[in-house]
């Protein structure tokens, strides 16, 4: 498999060259164009635990992920993948490590990487958007997408990041999610909804723009649905 990232950082697109009988997993809907010899199948990933009811609840909360598997046949093939929003694509190589990915930041991964619905998300009280996380294990490549550009923070000690700006972080970090402001009124008026407190040593990948803020800015000007 060969990977080329084109038109970074604003209009990034991943060009994947598959050898015969090779496959790549991608978020359903990420396919732009491909050789006609590629075979596609889509599966639904749901979170673990909570039994049937828990699973249903997660589906209702939007905590599910459709993943498409693209498989080349007897000949080499090419495939273009792109995210929804304007911005960059970040390739991250896993080698037995674990990465926590914001669900909307997942674009694609090679078969050696296991993607699971990680820990229970939460619903933002202010916007109603649900935020949930995926965990990536194993070894291989994960492609992540960002709204805007990506920057990396090497945490050694403690760090605070707004949840809307997190693309992914290494699982060597401990984290806890809380309100940015001590009082609920303060959290409401400051516009900083929730933040993630990181502790330990590891990398956090951030995006320069917050999809939620952008969505509220544009969506708020539209007629009610």
């Amino acid at each position: 498999m060969k990977l080329e990232l084109l038109h970074q950082p604003d209009s990034a697109v991943a060009k994947v060259l598959l050898d015969p009988q090779e496959e790549i997993l991608a978020e359903a809907g990420a396919m732009v164009a491909m050789s006609s010899s590629i075979d596609v199948s889509t599966t639904l990933r749901k979170g673990k635990g909570g039994g049937v009811l828990g699973g249903l609840k997660r589906m209702v909360a939007g905590e599910s992920l459709f993943i498409s598997v693209f498989r080349s046949g007897g000949s080499a093939a090419e495939l273009y993948l792109s995210p929804t929003l304007m911005g960059d694509i970040l390739p991250y190589t896993l080698s037995g490590t674990e990465l926590v990915i914001q669900s909307t930041s997942y674009l694609a991964s090679t078969p050696g990487v296991q993607i699971d619905l990680g820990f229970t998300g939460f619903k933002s009280l202010f916007s109603g958007e649900s935020l949930f996380w995926l965990t990536a294990n194993g070894s291989g490549l994960a492609l992540l997408n960002a709204f805007g550009s990506v920057y990396e923070i090497d945490v050694d000690g403690e760090y605070v990041v707004d949840t809307g700006h997190i693309v992914a972080f290494e699982r060597t970090l401990d984290y806890s999610i809380s309100k940015a402001n001590k009082s609920w009124a303060g959290a409401f008026f400051s516009g900083e909804g929730f933040v993630c407190h990181f502790k330990g040593k590891g990398k956090v990948f951030c995006q320069t723009h917050n999809p939620g803020s952008f969505g509220r800015m544009v969506g708020g000007k539209l007629p009610p649905r």
Partner: peptide
């Protein structure tokens, strides 16, 4: 490299 319909689907829940 981007799709207008997907972009609109992203904005829709924020209405």
């Amino acid at each position: 490299t981007r799709n207008v319909a997907s972009f609109v689907r992203f904005i829709h829940p924020f209405r």
